[in-house]
Structure formats: C-alpha cells, structure tokens
C-alpha cells in the first residue's frame, strides 16, 4: 500500500540520508530507528508530503502521493513533534476542533469517551495551559482513539508519557493494525505493539 523508493533528504548543505526505500502493507508497522539528527522526523514529514524529497518517490496504493494530493491526505493521520493543541482551549474543545479541521467531525459523546480512554476524565473543561506536558500529549493522542483513516504517521508518540499511557497508546496502535491499518512511527523506547508484522528501518548507519 505504502511504498517508498530511493528517497534522499538534503537539509541545508548536509545530506541526511539517501537510497532509503521500504514497502508497507495493510496491518504492518514500520518502526524508524536512528540516532538524534539522523533524519527520522524529516523522513516522516516527507512521507506526509510536507517536504519534497530531493530524489525518489513515494507511492500510495500504487500511485505517487504527490499526484494524489488531497485524496492521499484524506487517508492520512499525522501526529508530529508538536501537539497541535491550543493552550487557551480545553481538551474537549481541542479534540472537537482538530477532528473538524481534519474533515472528520466527532460527536461530543465520542470525544468525551476518547478523553476518558487517554486518562483525562475530569479534565475536559480545564484550559490546556494548566495541564502537564504528558497530559497535553495525551490530548493530542486522544485523536487516535476514534481515528479510522488508513495510514498513521506518528513522530515520537510516547514522548513525555508515563508507563501506563505508553501501554495505552501501544494498544491503540495495535488495534489500528488489526483493523488493517498501517502505521509508521519513530521512537527511542522499545515498546511492544501487537502487530502482525513489524518492520524496522535504521537511518544513518
């Protein structure tokens, strides 16, 4: 479903990686490994289409993602380094707004349920400014609970989370893979995800 061939990334004067390729099918997880600065985030942003590769091609269901444009983005859920939540809004408002911006409105009951799943019950109406770093990350991750788009691209999803939350997120990713979804993620923590097959890609070696 998702194929990348011969990708090359140049940042400023430096070439971060070249000749990177992989193939990912339904129900599979790609785990990106590599030291800091080896280009993991750059590769993820490239897969999303936020940056154009210096060379190489990315294909989704056999067609180049650059050509598919909106059709590809409608099947993509990207969670970046930044949480994309507003400090002035409450977790509930943030979740409802981000779902609506992504073009998939969420019913309020589902949103409350998602916040409960990520352990934010009782905090729904507190401005996000008053939440801890880990709680803010949970607000961002609450999007995944009812997310049914096929391809998840997650940049360091476990960062700032406690042990229980890491397990919960790994569970969400596992359930997504079992539904036949695809996931690409970077992490420095070895986390067990219940997936049919896990591929690993090491950058910068």
């Amino acid at each position: 479903m998702l194929e990348a061939s011969n990708l090359e990334c140049v940042r400023g004067e430096r070439r971060l990686f070249a000749g990177v390729g992989f193939r990912l099918d339904a129900g599979e997880l790609l785990s990106l490994q590599g030291a800091n600065g080896s280009g993991k985030t750059s590769l993820l942003r490239m897969l999303c289409g936020l940056t154009a590769p210096a060379a190489g091609e990315i294909r989704w269901r056999g067609q180049a993602t650059a050509k598919l444009g909106g059709e590809f983005r409608a099947e993509l859920c990207y969670l970046g380094h930044h949480n994309a939540i507003k400090e002035e809004l409450t977790p509930l408002e943030n979740l409802l707004t981000s779902a609506r911006l992504a073009g998939e409105p969420l019913a309020e009951d589902n949103a409350l349920d998602a916040l409960e799943t990520v352990g934010l019950a009782g905090r729904e109406d507190l401005a996000c400014r008053y939440l801890s770093q880990g709680q803010k990350r949970r607000v961002a991750l609450a999007r995944l609970v009812h997310e049914r788009r096929a391809l998840w691209i997650l940049d360091e999803p476990y960062v700032a989370l406690d042990v229980a939350a890491v397990d919960m997120v790994a569970g969400l990713i596992g359930a997504h893979l079992q539904r036949g979804g695809l996931a690409v993620l970077t992490t420095h923590q070895p986390v067990a995800v219940a997936a049919g097959s896990i591929r690993e890609l090491r950058l910068g070696s």
């Binding site: 999303c48 936020l50 993509l76 930044h82 992504a102």
Partner: peptide, 15 residues
C-alpha cells in the same frame, strides 16, 4: 506554526 496546528491544516484533505 509554533504549536503544530499549521502542519495539521496543511495536511487536511481540503486546499
């Protein structure tokens, strides 16, 4: 731009 919302807007299916 700073909090990542702009990335999400750019990745939405709409222009």
């Amino acid at each position: 731009f700073r909090d990542g919302t702009l990335e999400q807007l750019a990745l939405g299916p709409q222009p």
